[in-house]
Design a protein around this nucleic acid. Structure first.
Lengths: 266, 266
DNA sequence: AGAAGGACCAGTGGTCCGTA
DNA sequence: AGAAGGACCAGTGGTCCGTA
C-alpha cells in the first residue's frame, strides 16, 4: 500500500463509532487501526441504544445517498458497536479501485482488506496474552481470535466473511499491482463483488504454479498472509490445475517425462 | 541412537506377529519398523482366532517367565494384531536401560520410544497421501494419523498412551545421554514407570530455560520431536519455573532488572 | 497399587442456508 | 438477484476414569 493508497483506505472507512471503538480497545496495543482511526473525524453518537427489534431494517434512520462532509452519512463499515447496542448487518461490498470511497450503503475493497489487517492485530494481542500466561499460542487466525475480536467490540468481523474473501486478500498481498488492475477492470465492467471474487482465483493459481504448485508455501512466504488458512477451494483449484499441467506437458513430450514440478518420474 | 543401542532396541521388541504385521503394512513404504523387524525371528502364529471374551485375561496362554530362544515368549509388545483377532491390552512398561530387554509380561523403554518413531512413519505416509490428493497436509501427529495407524493394523498405538509419554520421548531426543542416565538411575532404584516419567520433566524444564523458556521452539528445533504437540503439563511447568526464576533474579538484583529472558523491563 | 486406553467433551475449522 | 453472517456439524485436541 503506497502512501496515497493508504490515505484512500482511510477514506473508505466510515466515521461513526470511532470514539467508542477506541474506548473499547480492551487489551489493545493500538496498531494500524488506531493510527488510521486517529485521522478520522470524531462524531457524536446518534441513534444510540436502539436494539434490533427482530424484523425490519428499512426503517433505518438515514436513507440519504448524499455524502455531505458535515456529519456522518453512513453508520456502517466502521468499528464495533459502541455502548452495547447491537449492530445492523454490514453494508455489502462493491468493487472499488484503490483509494476509492464506496458511496451509498456500500463498503469498498480497501475496507475489506483493512479488516484482514485488523484481524492480524487481534491475533497479535491474543498471542501476547497467551505467551504471558504460558499457554499455547495460535499462529493462525482461529476461532479464539474471532471470539476475542467480538469481545473487543469488533462486531463487524466474523469468520464466514473473512474466510470468504481470504484469497482476494492473498492476491492483494502477493501481487498488489495485479490485484489493483483486476479491481479496476471489474469496476469498469460494472461486475458485482461475487464475479470479482471468483476472478481472484486464477492469478493465484498462476502464482502457485510458479512455486511448484505449493500453495501452502506461497501463503507462508508472506508474513501477513501466513496467518490465514489456505481456503479449500483455492487448494483444490491448484491441485486440479497441476494435474492438467502435468498431463499436458507429459503428453507433449510423449508420456512419462518432462514438465511439471511434482510426482514426476525422472 | 548409536549402533549398539539400536540393536538393543530391536531386542526389546517381542517376536510374534512380525509376519502378519508385514503383510498388513497397507500403504506401507517400510521404514524403521521393517528394517528392525527384518532382524526378528519369524514365528508361526499360535493361539490365533481367540477373541477377547469380555472379562478375564489371567487365563492367558503362556504364563512363562523364561526367555527360551526356542519360540515366542511374549505375544505382547509386537506389531498390530494379525488375522483380525483383537489384541489384549499391551503389557505395562518398566524402566529399562538402553538396550535392555524387558522380561516377563512387560515392555521396555526402547520399545516405548520406538512407538514414537512408528508414529512418525505413519505421519509421513499420511502426508504423502494428502499431498498426492492436494489436501491439507498435517505437520503433527493428529487424530487422523492415529486413525490411519489403527487402520494399518497398529493396534498397539493409541493417542492417550503416546500423549502420556511425549515428554519422555522429548528428553530422549534432546539429550540422549541425560535420558539414558535417568533410566539407569531409576532402574537401579527400582522405581516404577510413573516415577521415571515424572522425573523426565525436570531436565526438560532446564533445557527450556537455556532457550529463553520457549518450549515450543525447543520442540520445533528437533526434526523428530517437532511433529509432537507440547504437552500441557510441560508447558505449565516451564511457565511456572520461568516466573520463579524471574522473581528470584529480580529480587537478587533489587527489583525490576536483571536475569530471565522474557517480559523483563530493562 | 500402578498402568493402559476406550470413550467422552469442550471448543475447532469449515461453510451452509435461513435472512435481509 | 446478490450478499452478510448465525449457527450448525463432523471431526480435533485433550485427558479422565472405568477397566484389567
Amino acid at each position: 500500500v503506497s502512501g496515497d493508497a493508504q490515505h484512500g483506505a482511510l477514506d473508505a472507512l466510515s466515521q461513526e463509532d470511532r470514539t467508542a471503538q477506541q474506548d473499547k480497545e480492551a487489551a489493545g496495543s493500538g496498531g494500524a487501526w488506531d493510527i488510521m482511526a486517529a485521522g478520522g473525524r470524531k462524531v457524536s453518537m446518534k441513534k444510540n441504544c436502539r436494539r434490533r427489534t427482530s424484523k425490519m431494517g428499512s426503517m433505518e434512520d438515514d436513507d440519504d445517498d448524499d455524502d455531505s462532509e458535515g456529519a456522518e452519512e453512513d453508520e456502517n463499515g466502521g468499528g464495533g458497536g459502541g455502548g452495547g447496542r447491537e449492530r445492523q448487518r454490514e453494508h455489502p461490498f462493491i468493487v472499488t479501485e484503490v483509494g476509492e470511497v464506496a458511496r451509498g450503503k456500500k463498503n469498498g475493497l480497501d475496507y475489506l482488506f483493512h479488516l484482514y489487517e485488523l484481524c492480524r492485530e487481534f491475533l497479535i494481542q491474543v498471542q501476547n496474552i497467551a505467551r504471558e500466561r504460558g499457554e499455547k499460542c495460535p499462529t493462525k487466525v482461529t476461532n479464539q481470535v474471532f471470539r476475542y475480536a467480538k469481545a473487543a467490540g469488533a462486531n463487524h468481523i466474523n469468520k464466514p466473511k473473512m474466510r470468504h474473501y481470504v484469497h482476494c486478500y492473498a492476491l492483494h498481498c502477493l501481487d498488489e499491482a495485479a490485484s489493483n488492475a483486476l479491481r479496476r477492470a471489474f469496476k469498469e465492467r460494472r461486475e458485482n463483488v461475487g464475479a470479482w471474487r471468483q476472478a481472484c482465483y486464477m492469478p493465484l493459481v498462476a502464482i502457485a504454479a510458479r512455486h511448484g504448485w505449493d500453495i501452502d508455501a506461497v501463503f507462508n512466504s508472506h508474513s501477513r498472509l501466513s496467518i490465514w488458512y489456505v481456503p479449500t477451494k483455492l487448494r483444490q483449484l491448484c491441485h486440479a490445475e497441476r494435474s492438467n499441467a502435468t498431463a499436458a506437458s507429459s503428453s507433449v513430450t510423449g508420456g512419462g517425462s518432462g514438465g511439471g514440478a511434482d510426482h514426476l518420474p525422472y
